[in-house]
Amino acid sequence: MSISVEIGDLTQVEADAIVNAANSTLLGGGGVDGAIHAAAGPRLLEACRRLRNTTHRGGLDVGDAVATPAFDLPASWVIHTVGPNLHRGQDDPALLASCFARSLDVAAELDARSVAFPAVSAGAYGWPVPDVARIAVTTCRGWLAEHPDGSPQEVRFVVVDERIRDAFEDAIGMA
């Protein structure tokens, strides 16, 4: 079991699954969500529309996760999760922790051995990076400890800059 952090482009990561910091519509957006949709190609949007027309008619709830194939990405799966939006008063750390735990639950259902996460809710959703890093690392470390023989075995945080990387490195060292 391993947890690591690196600066990089999540759309270029070779992992069994990458996690999309999606919005509740599942139909694409800005930031990580927009980049993943653009890199995965139009079939990702079609798959998300199918989810909206079947199992997630009202959209995906904050803190929940669901998977689609990754299509043109190097990963096999995209796990979509909706982080809490601090600007909308969604300030419960349990909702943010749920994003990471539910994503790992979905990864386990897919038998994904490796999962790459962005800093969910740290961008446009306004959560302080140190809080996101602490909650993410603590949640993932706890999940991995509860599932020592299962999948996934590798969690990577793929972030966009040194400031975010440093916060995750601090959280990894402290947790």
Rank of each mutant, 00 (worst) to 15 (best):
N53W: 11
T55G: 09
H56V: 06
R57S: 10
G58R: 13
G58L: 12
G58A: 10
V62N: 01
V62G: 02
G63C: 04
A65F: 06
V66K: 10
T68F: 06
F71L: 05
F71D: 04
F71K: 07
S76K: 14
V82G: 07
P84S: 05
P84C: 05
N85R: 14
L86F: 09
L86M: 04
H87P: 04
D92R: 08
P93L: 08
P93D: 06
L95H: 04
L96D: 02
L96V: 00
S98N: 02
C99G: 03
A101F: 04
D105K: 08
A108F: 00
A108I: 05
E109K: 07
E109Q: 14
L110P: 08
D111S: 10
A112E: 14
V115M: 02
P118Y: 12
P118I: 11
V120M: 05
A124N: 15
Y125M: 05
V129C: 00
P130N: 02
P130F: 01
V132T: 01
T139K: 09
R141Y: 01
G142A: 10
H147F: 03
H147V: 07
G150L: 02
G150P: 06
S151E: 14
P152T: 10
P152Y: 11
E154T: 15
V155G: 03
V159Y: 10
V159H: 10
E162I: 13
